[in-house]
Simulated scan of single mutants.
Amino acid sequence: YRGSLTTIILRLLEQEGKMYGYEITQKVKEMTGGRMKIKEGALYPSLHKLETEGHLKVAVEKVDNRIRKYYSLTPQGEKEVVSMLAELKEYMENMQAIMNHKLSY
């Protein structure tokens, strides 16, 4: 998933509304049958970067005597996810065309 973590995060938050970090890692693991695992060392820097760029907002809540940070999309983040998904779709279509192209020698 190298290079696509930002897209994964934004898409999940678009679908789920708000999530905390560990929840994101578990959802990806569940959705991919364990084939994709996001490490905290990759996730949290991406979340912080998206927050700094104005794509995410953070709400702190106390859950079972623990402080939990929930991430959700800002209006700018909602626009960004639409743009990123369009780019990803185009990329996948181009890769499909390349992979299915019969080479002639």
Rank of each mutant, 00 (worst) to 15 (best):
G3H: 07
M84D: 12
M95Y: 07
L103S: 11
K39E: 15
K39W: 15
I67M: 12
A59T: 15
T6C: 01
L12R: 05
I9F: 01
K102W: 00
G33E: 06
G33P: 08
E80S: 05
S72D: 08
S104D: 08
K69N: 15
T25M: 06
Q15W: 10
K39P: 07
Q26H: 07
I98Y: 10
E30S: 03
Y71M: 09
K27W: 04
R68H: 10
N100P: 00
L56C: 02
Y91D: 13
V82M: 10
L50F: 08
L88C: 00
V81L: 00
I24C: 03
Y71C: 05
M99W: 14
T25F: 02
L43R: 10
L13F: 05
H48Y: 14
L103V: 12
G41I: 06
L5H: 00
E30P: 01
E87V: 06
K69G: 09
H48G: 11
K39I: 06
K49W: 10
A97M: 00
Q15M: 14
L56G: 05
V81S: 04
Y1S: 15
K49F: 09
G21A: 05
K69P: 00
M95T: 05
V82C: 02
E23Q: 09
A42F: 12
E78F: 04
G41H: 10
K62P: 00
K57C: 08
L50G: 06
G17T: 06
S83K: 14
M95H: 09
E14P: 01
L56F: 06
A59V: 09
L85A: 10
L43C: 06
M31T: 02
V81F: 04
H101V: 09
I67L: 13
E53V: 03
K69T: 07
Q96G: 10
N65P: 11
M31C: 01
Y22L: 10
I9Q: 04
R11V: 05
E90A: 13
M84I: 14
V58F: 02
Y20L: 02
L85C: 11
A97G: 00
L50P: 08
Y44I: 06
A42M: 08
Y71D: 09
